[in-house]
Write a protein that binds this DNA or RNA. Structure first.
Lengths: 195, 195
DNA sequence: CCTACCGATCGGTAGG
DNA sequence: CCTACCGATCGGTAGG
């Protein structure tokens, strides 16, 4: 049964190419004709695999959001110190950014173009994610593992610092992914200053 | 002479409103008709003040880029420790992000929509900025003020962490701008862990 | 600063 | 999966 074996492969190709183009040019500036050309078919043929341009964005954004939320809940429930939880979360973010670069980038920067009700849904998941993330930091402060800083501010810094990996990705890296990961964890957890 | 006094005021209104809309919806998704409505004139009338949609983006991006570059050169030439230079740069970034939010945000996220030769020009300024920034960190490592981390990675973290202030801006802030600034500097320079 | 309009391109559909 | 095409909207111009 060779048809079942790779049944949805064309749709996957479309989603992958779309993620690449949405990252390069942005969602709004990517036309369905551009995308079709990259996939190697006519624009009209795209609609045999997807319902609309926005459906592609939805697939990308929620795929990423669900993956991150699942991991966060797993870490939250684990038996670790707060600093160890934070470190694990950050390493996950960094690895995701490296391994699923296009998708994660698009989910982070282009979600504003989602239509309702997906827009509200995504925004809620995002808010919920940050709230749980902040609560882990708060717990660390309470247990005296973490400095008394404003937890939401720390969340913003950690999440955005990681999203900066795009620049590393583009610049053809003089350091390996593993070195990058260790550098980021060191800087964010222990700071720049030498004690 | 009341005409000279506020000669370019309408153009300034257009640039300000455009920065707001480009931030909210992105450059590509903002139409000249949307913008005209916000300014309170017909779309065609915009062209009495600006040459094209792209010219607006150019004005925003290079205004910000020049301001940042000027400040960086001033700090670089100053007589301070590396850590003090870094702290001053970061405080400048944070203040700019708070005071000129729309403009700085657009310059950071929408510059990809610049046309040539502006696109290459902007990219070069950006690369140059990061190179100088990294050299300040390298100098700090050489003088033993800063940990032995990869300087380009540190630059990415510092710059992107600050750009995360958009989230603080949107969330109607429970802390003041000054508290935010101090929190960010602490976290990035001294880290999260309590020693 | 407006009315009137241009050619180009958009996302998407009909029908095969 | 394609050809042929739709109405809507885009950035921008002519002319006043």
């Amino acid at each position: 049964m060779p048809t079942t074996k790779r049944r949805s492969s064309k749709k996957e190709v479309i989603l992958t190419k779309a993620a690449q183009m949405f990252r390069e040019k942005g969602f709004a500036a990517t036309s369905m004709r551009d995308l079709a050309e990259r996939v190697g078919i006519e624009a009209a043929s795209l609609y045999n695999h997807i319902k609309s341009k926005n459906e592609i964005l939805e697939a990308i954004c929620f795929d990423v959001a669900n993956r991150f939320m699942l991991h966060l809940e797993e870490v939250e429930a684990s038996d670790k110190t707060s600093i160890a939880k934070l470190e694990r979360l950050m390493r996950f973010h960094i690895q995701e950014m490296i391994e699923n670069y296009e998708e994660v980038y698009v989910s982070d920067r282009e979600w504003k173009h989602l239509d309702e009700p997906f827009l509200s849904n995504f925004r809620n998941q995002r808010r919920q994610y940050r709230k749980i993330f902040a609560s882990i930091i708060e717990a660390g402060i309470a247990k005296n593992e973490i400095k008394k800083i404003d937890a939401p501010t720390a969340v913003i810094i950690l999440l955005h610092a990681v999203s900066g990996i795009e620049s590393w990705h583009r610049s053809q890296a003089k350091i390996t992914a593993q070195e990058l990961e260790n550098n980021m964890v060191t800087i964010l957890i222990d700071g720049l200053r030498k004690h």
